[in-house]
Design a protein around this nucleic acid. Structure first.
Length: 139
DNA sequence: GCCAACGTTGGC
DNA sequence: GCCAACGTTGGC
């Protein structure tokens, strides 16, 4: 299974919105960046991701799961834009902030730190385990 | 609210 | 196919 990180501004789509979408999940729509889209195309059902609040909070606040592979983004006219569907799985007991991630040497290679503008990013197994540990989650 | 970083667009 | 101009993202 692969791991990912999804960024959203809480003003437009927050963790609470994501949880309100329930078990059937919701489209991760609105991505207009090829790298981010390609990452979504590579996802499989069951892959997990961090849900990150950008701008306000700047922290990983929860865990999501891919419930549907990439398909046309209903908010885009251009068929080139695709998105996956995600459902909320669990809260981070202690949100892991960007400052926390930057301060942790084990995470210095993480895309969140080094490619700050990419909105859908891959996460390595080690990074996944480390951020979960920092957030207070067990395996 | 500013600005740096970076992706995209369009003229040549 | 290069590169300048422009727009957007996101941290501060």
């Amino acid at each position: 299974m692969a791991y990912w990180l999804f960024k959203s501004e809480p003003d437009s789509w927050s963790w609470d919105d994501q949880k309100a979408a329930g078990a059937k999940g919701a489209e991760w729509s609105g991505v207009r960046n090829y790298q981010a889209r390609n990452n979504m195309r590579a996802m499989k059902v069951g892959d997990r991701g961090f849900f990150y609040h950008s701008n306000e909070g700047k922290a990983v606040v929860g865990i999501v799961e891919v419930v549907k592979t990439a398909h046309h983004d209903s908010t885009a006219d251009d068929p080139a834009w695709e998105c996956v569907d995600l459902k909320a799985v669990e809260d981070m007991p202690n949100p892991v902030t960007l400052a926390d991630a930057k301060a942790n040497q084990k995470l210095e290679g993480m895309a969140l730190v080094s490619k700050s503008r990419l909105s859908v990013q891959p996460v390595t197994d080690d990074e996944w385990a480390e951020v979960r540990r920092m957030g207070g989650l067990k395996d």
